[in-house]
Computed example of a mutant assay.
Amino acid sequence: MLVSRWALETFGQRAPLIRQGVADALSVALDNARDAQAAARTDHTHPFGFTLMSRKFEALAETFEDMGDVRVVKPAGSPHELVVLGGKLLFPFRYARDRSVSVMSARIGEGRPSALVRALFQRFGPEPVMRQLTLHDVAPQAAPEAEALAELPPETGLVLIAYACNAHAGLLDAWWGEAELLDRAGSLRWHHCEAIPLPAAGAAGLTPLPAAAFDQGAVPAPALNPRTGAARLVPPSAGEPAPVTPITRAEAASGE
């Protein structure tokens, strides 16, 4: 699968391997969560959800730990470490349990996004298409979390990784891109969203990603044209997934 212009502009020549690393990390996290569920021998999916909640961040950190420009930060008050790679903060979240929900109608967080998540969008998300909301418009309680992120450069960009999964089927699909947070319910407006090819069943693993390899080989031809500003509101051209009218749906409490 060709790499889009957005991915190349975001991650440079490393985009194909970074995309592969994200897919592998998600697959490993899901495998670990399913193993925990099986070991618990219970019909309740709490073991799956709690394991996935931590492992999705840890697996990303493990996958990219040997890269020279990776940074792992743990904001005050957060139980998770966040990966910043090449100035892009990778944030994975589950948007659905099955394929009945379109990623275009994805919501982030359970009910209301956490103060940390709102602060991430406020500081590092893309410029909103509509009126720029202030921190207190969307995140009235996020000021301490925003201060905790002050160590990161202001030009850091937020890259969302949205995936659908469940304890029985495992990882169903995954997407990455940029979006703005629309409201306190966690609704998103995608500025760019594209599918991440997933490894074949049973083939997932933490693929070593030596930094030297990223400077070798030809740059893949972009699959999509860049769409910025008002152009993002134009209907997609052939080959891009058609937008779906957002239908809000809260993520399950487990595995957010």
Rank of each mutant, 00 (worst) to 15 (best):
E147H: 05
I161G: 02
T156K: 08
M67G: 00
S105L: 06
T228N: 00
V234R: 00
A39R: 15
P235Y: 01
P140F: 14
A185G: 15
L60E: 13
F91D: 08
P246L: 07
V138E: 05
A212M: 08
S105V: 05
A115M: 09
N32K: 13
N32C: 06
L181S: 10
G177P: 10
V3R: 04
S78Q: 04
A36V: 04
W176P: 04
A242D: 13
G239W: 04
G229F: 00
M130K: 13
P144N: 09
G125A: 09
A115Y: 09
Q132C: 11
A230W: 01
L233H: 02
V73M: 09
R184F: 01
V84D: 13
R232P: 00
R184K: 14
V72E: 08
G170R: 14
H191V: 01
G205V: 00
M53S: 15
G229N: 01
I161Y: 15
S54N: 07
E145F: 14
A212S: 13
G125S: 13
A203K: 11
G202W: 11
L188E: 12
E240V: 05
G87A: 10
R5G: 01
D69H: 14
D24K: 10
G205T: 05
A25T: 09
R189S: 08
A204T: 07
A25D: 09
A146M: 11
D66C: 02
F48R: 07
G255N: 10
M104F: 10
L233R: 03
Q122N: 13
A221I: 03
F50C: 09
L120K: 09
E251I: 08
K56P: 09
A211L: 02
A23P: 11
A23E: 13
Q20L: 05
L158G: 03
E151D: 15
L116C: 06
L85I: 11
V22K: 12
D43Q: 12
R14S: 14
L8D: 06
A221D: 14
A146C: 08
E65M: 01
P226H: 05
T42V: 14
P128K: 06
H44M: 08
A40M: 05
L82Y: 14
P75F: 14
H136I: 04
E9C: 01
L60V: 06
T228A: 05
K88C: 12
C165P: 01
L209V: 11
L135Q: 09
